[in-house]
Design a protein around this nucleic acid. Structure first.
Length: 417
RNA sequence: GUGCCUGUAGCUCAAUGGCAGAGUACUUCACUGUGGAUGAAGAUGUUGAGGGUUCGAGCCCCUCCAGGCACCCCA
């Protein structure tokens, strides 16, 4: 055991059970995406570092990306996020694409970070964007995709909430308080982290930015004002759309939501589990200029990303992961003895030709075969012995209820459909 | 990248510096046409890796690896 070569730090092996859960997750987010007319796309996992130089958070590329030289000596990056790739893909076909475009993706990403609960170095991420519209209506649409996904996987609005804010609103409020535009970016970063730092430390950090006592007081008042959205025409309208989309109970205004990435210019949002035991489930926002940095004409858009790790932890905590994913539609054909093997092979083949998934056992004691079927997690086991062969039937046993009865062989395939 | 905690059988965990154990899971049998129970028997480890202190180390010290918590950052 000790000599098995270790896997790379922060990566995960997906054994069939875990893989089945991931496939299940993808089915759900695919459904949520496609019900709003979004199309799947994918980009390369390898990119040049230049793609990220112009945008992203500085730190995301400099500190957290896997960068290495290819055999020709050129620097290559394992993609830490998808947005720059999306920007390039849109920019290079800008004149042919039908706007606004609705695209989604699911694939692997890499960040060189210290692994923790909910954070690995290799993770999968759902990205979904609407590009080419500035309408508040489409901001609401993305919130609806997120909320409908949460609903699809069984998370109710008393378990998760999507917290929203608007950077334009915050910018205006900070101006009113007398914050200079040079100070704003640093201050916004601090606001984003207010719940992570002790109150006195946080206040000192804010004071270090040059704010006076009155201004700090005003900001603290701002950040507990859950009615602040009423000052924003955009948010007021957004909440009306959200209600019409039938997801009102999932959406809540939260003035502390800012988000770290620099390119958000309007709506910003994060979905959180309500008890606060987990990192953000998903996060996103509205951006004014996606493709400008990679050489295209400016295009606005809105989108969000969801990692696979946190959502699975949340679903597990609420007992919402389906348990029987292994062999959902597989039947198990026992082999009565060596003499009956050919007959069992014929039976299995017959069933496969009718579209069933069939696992064929090997001749052994029936006790062992049933035990194997049980542990594999299949729903049905079939027995074809001398008696059944003689009267052209097959015994079907439901492994969950322990009931069994013979069926005419010609009807067999139809009873599983 | 910084600080702290943890690492013993497949899993969950015991073991004052003194013979490495239990529960569970696993294998075989009771049960030669049937898997959830019961009983009997059996197998399982270089105690994460390497070094040091000691008559003697799972336990103490050092280094490394991995995981967890906080920071940082973010999915």
């Amino acid at each position: 055991m000790k000599e098995i070569i270790r896997s790379v730090k922060g990566t995960r092996d997906f054994y069939p059970d875990e893989m089945a859960r991931r496939t299940w997750l993808v089915e759900k987010l695919k459904k949520a995406s496609e019900s709003f007319g979004y199309q799947r796309y994918e980009g390369p996992c390898l990119e040049t570092i230049d793609l990220y130089a112009a945008k992203s958070g500085e730190e995301l590329v400099k500190e957290q990306a896997f960068v290495f030289e290819d055999r020709g000596g050129d620097p290559i990056t394992l993609r830490p996020e998808l947005t720059p790739t999306l920007a390039r893909m849109v920019a290079s076909q800008q004149n042919q694409l039908v706007l606004p475009l609705r695209w989604w993706a699911f694939g692997p990403f890499w960040r060189y970070e210290r692994p923790q609960k909910g954070r690995t170095r290799e993770f999968y991420q759902w990205n979904i964007d609407l590009i080419g519209s500035d309408a508040i209506q489409v901001d609401a649409e993305l919130l609806a995709v997120a909320a409908n996904f949460l609903r699809l996987v069984g998370l109710k609005s008393d378990m998760v909430q999507i917290l929203v804010n608007d950077r334009r609103l915050m910018d205006r409020m900070l101006t009113e308080i007398g914050i200079s535009s040079e100070t704003k970016p640093d201050l916004l970063r601090l606001i984003d982290r207010i719940d992570k730092q002790p109150a006195d430390v946080w206040e000192k950090n804010v004071a270090d930015l040059g704010l006076n006592f009155e201004q700090i007081k005003a900001i603290k008042a701002l950040l507990i004002n859950t009615q602040l959205w009423q000052e924003s025409q955009e948010l007021s309208q957004l909440f009306e759309y959200v209600k019409a989309l039938g997801i009102g109970e999932y959406i809540r205004y939260e003035p502390k939501i800012i988000r770290g990435l620099d390119y958000y210019t309007g709506l910003v949002f994060e979905a959180h589990e309500v008890k606060g035991d987990f990192r953000a489930i998903l996060g996103g926002g509205h951006y004014a200029n996606l493709v400008g940095d990679v050489g295209g004409r400016p295009l606005p858009g809105v989108g969000f990303a969801m990692g696979d790790v946190v959502i699975m932890l949340v679903l597990e905590a609420y007992g919402l992961l389906p348990a029987d994913l292994r062999y959902p539609s597989t039947v198990f054909v026992t082999v009565f003895n060596e003499e009956m093997l050919l007959e069992s092979i014929r039976l299995a083949t017959e069933l496969r030709e009718n579209g069933l998934h069939v696992v064929l056992a090997e001749p052994d004691k029936l006790t062992k075969q049933f035990k194997l079927a049980d542990r594999l997690g299949v729903k049905f086991a079939l027995v074809l012995g001398p008696d059944e062969l003689a009267n052209d039937t097959v015994v079907v046993k439901d492994l969950n209820t322990f009931e069994q009865r013979p069926f005419p062989r010609k009807d067999l395939a139809s009873i599983f459909i």
